[in-house]
Amino acid sequence: MSAVGQRPGRATASLRHRLAERGIDPTLLLLVPGLVVAVALFVYPFSYGIGLTVQPTAAMQEQWGGGALANYVAFFRDPFVFDSVWLTMRLALPAALFNVLASVPVAMVLRHRFRGKRLLTSLLVLPITLGTVLTAQGLLIFAGRQGWINRTLLELGLVDEPLKLVNNYLGVMLSLIITGFPFAFLLISSYLSGIDPSLEQAAKTLGAGWWQRFRRIVLPLLAPGLATTFVLTFVLAFSVFPSARLVGDAMGETRVMSLMAFRAFGEQNDYTMASTIALMMGAVELIVVVAVLGLRSLLYRGTTGGKG
């Protein structure tokens, strides 16, 4: 028997073993179909789209100049297009913020056991299966000039003439809340359930009131989850399209970016401008997402006590 302290000089491992040590083995072949789909249907079209943006149509070049960058010039110079950035943000940011902030107290309350919780939870999840188009149709009927809401308000004498709840900014906002809130609620609930309840009880034994418990214990632990939820809800609201068209004012105050992209794509058949708007949309979203996630890592470093 040899003494320890000197390793046998020759490594007897085969190449297969040495690769396996770094995590490379035949199991990775399982990734191939997924990668093929991602590359063929996502990476390739995406790069193709980037290429398209610098091949503007002749009409575009003539109108806006800038040569190969004519589409970008048009995007920033044409107020009809560029204003859509602001119009989109004006809808998506407050909607996402409201959905996240409103979810917190609701999730806090629904966290505890009570009768009818299942029913209430399923009611909240229902809009996810309804989809934006049906929600839009329902809103038009329910909240329209002659809908039940206005009818009730008139009967009660609360208003003199019907409120304008649809075909404007408010209509889209309502639709974004109805479809986005349940999503935010589900997420926040799952983050909340990842926080060990004994932490709060510990705080209670240390003399913390309910606000102090929320402010000092729950909120800091929930913060990363809030940021993630905000990002995902924002992504949903940001790409709003059907509702902006159906319950909004498509050429006016809800002329969002995705509508502009669709207009260029479907109505003007200018694929290069459509790609440009689509990519700028991705860029704007990315800026917000990075900002929020940056803020999150700035504010909080640590674990939630649950997963996430």
Partner: peptide, 10 residues
């Protein structure tokens, strides 16, 4: 057991 490959020895 063979669940981890050896890098040395036999």
């Amino acid at each position: 057991a063979g669940l981890l490959p050896l890098t040395h020895g036999e």
